[in-house]
Deep mutational scan, measured.
Amino acid sequence: LAALHAEGPLAGLPVTRSDARVLIFNEWEERKKSEPWLRLDMSDKAIFRRYPHLR
């Protein structure tokens, strides 16, 4: 499970980098069924690119 911001401008976004990794992994797991070539990237760089508020 990932903790998400409940309200405000960040509502629905992950609270920590660990939470972001959970979301990225879950999405990758779903997408790899139809796109088996996808690589999993959970590096800090990938997290910041996707969720800049975690910098």
Rank of each mutant, 00 (worst) to 15 (best):
A46F: 06
E35C: 10
L23H: 05
S43R: 08
E27Q: 06
G8E: 14
K45G: 11
E27D: 11
L38E: 07
R49D: 14
K45F: 15
A3W: 15
G12Y: 06
E7W: 11
K32P: 02
W37P: 03
L1H: 12
L13A: 04
F48H: 06
G8K: 10
S43I: 02
R55W: 10
E29N: 15
E7H: 13
E7Y: 11
A11T: 12
E30R: 12
D19K: 02
W28R: 01
L40P: 08
V15R: 15
K45R: 15
D41R: 04
A6P: 13
T16C: 09
N26V: 10
R50C: 03
R55P: 06
E7K: 10
L1Y: 14
H5C: 08
I24N: 00
R55T: 11
R31F: 07
K32N: 07
M42S: 04
V22F: 13
L4Y: 09
L23N: 02
A6N: 13
I24A: 03
L10G: 02
G12E: 03
L54A: 00
H5P: 03
P9C: 09
Y51L: 09
W28P: 00
V22G: 04
E30L: 12
D19R: 02
G12W: 05
E30N: 15
K45I: 11
P52M: 02
A6L: 14
V22D: 03
R55F: 14
R31Q: 10
L10N: 15
R31I: 04
P14E: 01
S34L: 13
A3P: 03
H53Q: 01
A11G: 07
D19E: 08
G8R: 04
V15Y: 07
R17A: 12
E7I: 09
K32A: 10
W28T: 01
P52A: 04
A11L: 11
K32D: 03
H53Y: 09
I47H: 00
F25M: 10
M42K: 04
R21F: 06
A11F: 13
E29D: 08
L40K: 02
G8L: 04
I47S: 00
I47N: 00
T16W: 03
G8V: 06
I47T: 02
L10E: 04
P36K: 08
F25E: 06
E30V: 13
W28G: 01
R55L: 14
E7S: 14
A11R: 14
F48S: 12
A2T: 05
D41T: 05
F48P: 00
A46L: 09
S18M: 12
K32Q: 11
G12T: 05
L10F: 15
E7M: 11
D41K: 05
N26A: 14
L4Q: 05
F25Q: 06
T16E: 04
R49C: 10
S34Y: 13
W37D: 10
R55I: 15
R31L: 08
L10R: 04
R55H: 08
S43V: 02
G8F: 05
R17T: 15
G12P: 04
N26H: 14
L54Y: 00
E27S: 06
R55D: 10
S43N: 03
S43A: 05
Y51E: 00
T16F: 06
W28V: 02
V22H: 10
E35G: 04
P52Y: 02
L40M: 06
P36S: 06
I24L: 11
L1I: 15
R17D: 08
A2E: 03
L4P: 03
R55K: 14
F25C: 11
A3I: 12
I47A: 01
E35P: 04
E35L: 12
S18V: 09
F48D: 12
D41C: 07
T16R: 08
H5D: 04
L54V: 01
Y51R: 00
L13E: 04
V22N: 09
S18C: 15
F25Y: 15
A46H: 10
L38C: 08
R31M: 08
E7R: 07
P14M: 01
R31A: 09
V22T: 15
D44K: 08
E27P: 00
A2R: 03
D44H: 08
R31N: 10
L13T: 03
F48A: 06
D41G: 02
L54P: 00
W37C: 12
E30F: 14
E29T: 12
L13Q: 15
R49I: 09
A11M: 12
H53C: 01
R17M: 15
V22P: 01
V15L: 07
F25N: 05
K45A: 11
R21S: 09
R17C: 12
G8M: 05
K32E: 05
G8D: 05
G12M: 06
K32L: 11
A20H: 00
L38V: 14
P14Q: 00
A46S: 15
Y51I: 00
R21Q: 11
V22L: 14
Y51T: 00
K45E: 14
K45T: 12
L23T: 07
L54M: 07
L40R: 01
V15T: 05
L23I: 11
E35M: 07
E30M: 12
H5I: 11
W37H: 10
M42D: 10
F25K: 08
L54F: 05
D41Y: 04
R17P: 13
R49L: 14
F25P: 00
L10C: 06
F48V: 12
R50W: 03
V22R: 09
E30K: 13
R50K: 11
E27V: 06
D19I: 03
S18Q: 11
R21L: 13
A20K: 00
D19A: 07
L40S: 02
W28C: 02
R39K: 12
I47E: 02
R31S: 06
A2Y: 12
A3R: 07
W28A: 01
G8C: 07
L1G: 08
E7N: 11
I47W: 00
L54R: 00
E35K: 10
L54C: 00
L23E: 02
R49E: 15
W37V: 07
A20E: 02
L13V: 13
R49M: 13
K32M: 07
I47Y: 01
F48E: 07
E29H: 14
K33A: 09
S18D: 12
P52I: 02
R50G: 02
F48W: 09
L38R: 10
P14K: 01
R17H: 09
R49H: 13
V15Q: 09
E7P: 06
H53E: 01
G8T: 07
E7L: 14
P14W: 01
S34T: 15
R39C: 13
D44P: 14
V15S: 03
R50H: 05
F48C: 08
A6M: 14
D41A: 03
A46K: 06
L54H: 00
L54K: 00
A2G: 08
R49P: 02
R55V: 11
F48T: 07
L40V: 06
D44F: 08
E29S: 15
K45N: 15
P52E: 02
L13W: 04
P14G: 01
